[in-house]
Design a binder for these strands. Structure first.
Lengths: 188, 188
DNA sequence: GCCGTTGCATAACTGGCGTTACCTATTATA
DNA sequence: TATAATAGGTAACGCCAGTTATGCAACGGC
C-alpha cells in the first residue's frame, strides 16, 4: 500500500560519498545531499536514522573503495604483492585526497592503519622475503609503513606531488635500504 | 577617558590557544573563548576584528610554540642539530597533538613542511655530514623528513604511541640506513 | 474504483555559530 | 567633582546545521 521509495540506501550513500569527495566531511550536510539527489531531506531520513548514520555509511563506502584500489594494484601484477599494497595506499591518497584523510588521518585510538587481519598475510610474506623472525618482520613492516604513510599523507595534503613512477622508485629504494639494515646486507 | 581594557590581545590569544589545544580548532568559538576568559564576547571583538583573526593569532602562536620545541631540543645538545630538528618535530606532535594537526596536517598547497628558510641551514649541514651534492642532499632530507613526518603524524593521530627514546633509536637507524643508501656504505 | 498506508515536499523548530545594537559602567581629564 | 569617551554585559539578529510536524500524493489489496 505505501508508495515506492524514490531512492535506495545505496544511491544515497553513493551521493554522500561523492559530496564528501568534493567538499570534505563538512560538505556533507542533509540539505546539500538532498540537493545532489534532487529531492528534499525527507527521503534521507526515511532510510537513515540520522546524518551520523549517513556518515557511517560513507566511511564504509570509502573503506570499500580503498580496498578496490588495493585489489586493483594487486591484480595488475605490475609490482610484487607487498609493494602493491603500499602503492595502492599511496594511489588512493593521490586520487582520493578527502577520503584518504577521512580514513587514515583522523584520531582512531587503537587500530593501526590498514588494521589487523591483513597483518596475518603480510607479516609471513615479509618473513618469507627477508628471512626475518616474526618480531623483526613486524618491526620491518611498521617502519616501512611509516614511510609509506608519510608519503601518502603528504600527497593527500598537497605537501608533495609525486607521480606514481617516482613513488615506485623511492619505495623500492626504501625497501632495499631497510632490508640491508635489518638483514645485514642480505641478498634477494 | 575610556575604561581600561580587561584583557590584552596576548591574553586572549593565549586562552584561544589553550582552547584549541584541548578541543581542536572546532572548539575555538567566540562564546567558549569568552567563558574561558570569564567575560562576554565583547572584549574579544574589541581587540580582534573577527574570529578569523583570532584563529590567525592562534596559528602564529602555535607556530611559535613549535619553534620553542625545536629550540629546546637544539639547545639541550642531547642530539646533533639535524637530528634534534626531527626530534623536536616529533615531540611537538606527541605533546601538542591538536596544534600539530593544525600546523602540519592541513592542506597547504605550495610550502613544504617546515618551509624554506630553514632549508638554507639544513641542506648545507647534510652536505657537510654526508659529502653529498646539493641535489642529493635535498633528496636525502626529503626522504628522511617523510619518515619523520610519518612518525609524527601517526603519533598525533594516536596510531602510534612511541616513547621519545624509541623514536631516537629508530631515527638514528633510519639516518644511517639512508646514508648507506645514498653514499654507498660511506662511514661517519 | 476505493481505501488505508506511508513516502514525499514544504516549512517549520531547535540550537549553535559569528556578529552587533543598546545600554551601563568606568576612567582620565578639565 | 562633572564630563566625555568608550570598554563591557546583555540580548538580540541572521545564518545554517539537524531534525520533524503537517498535509499531499502514490500505491497495492479489496
Amino acid at each position: 500500500m505505501p508508495p515506492k521509495f524514490k531512492f535506495t540506501r545505496d544511491e544515497i550513500t553513493s551521493a554522500a560519498l561523492d559530496l564528501t569527495r568534493k567538499a570534505g566531511p563538512d560538505g556533507l550536510t542533509a540539505r546539500a545531499l538532498a540537493e545532489a539527489l534532487g529531492c528534499s531531506v525527507k527521503p534521507i531520513f526515511g532510510l537513515f536514522k540520522s546524518m551520523e548514520e549517513v556518515q557511517g555509511a560513507v566511511l564504509s563506502a570509502a573503506r570499500e573503495l580503498y580496498l578496490s584500489f588495493l585489489a586493483e594494484d594487486m591484480a595488475a601484477g605490475k609490482y610484487p604483492p607487498y609493494k602493491a599494497s603500499g602503492m595502492g595506499y599511496i594511489r588512493f591518497a593521490r586520487e582520493e585526497k578527502e577520503l584518504f584523510k577521512l580514513l587514515f588521518m583522523c584520531d582512531r585510538k587503537g587500530e593501526p592503519p590498514e588494521a589487523g587481519k591483513e597483518m596475518d598475510v603480510i607479516i609471513p610474506l615479509i618473513m618469507k622475503n627477508t628471512g626475518l623472525s616474526r618480531e623483526k618482520a613486524e618491526r620491518f613492516h611498521l617502519e616501512l609503513w611509516i614511510f609509506v604513510h608519510g608519503i601518502a599523507s603528504m600527497i593527500a595534503t598537497s605537501y608533495l606531488d609525486w607521480e606514481m613512477e617516482t613513488v615506485s622508485g623511492v619505495l623500492t629504494d626504501a625497501y632495499m635500504g631497510l632490508k640491508a639494515r635489518f638483514c645485514g646486507e642480505a641478498g634477494e
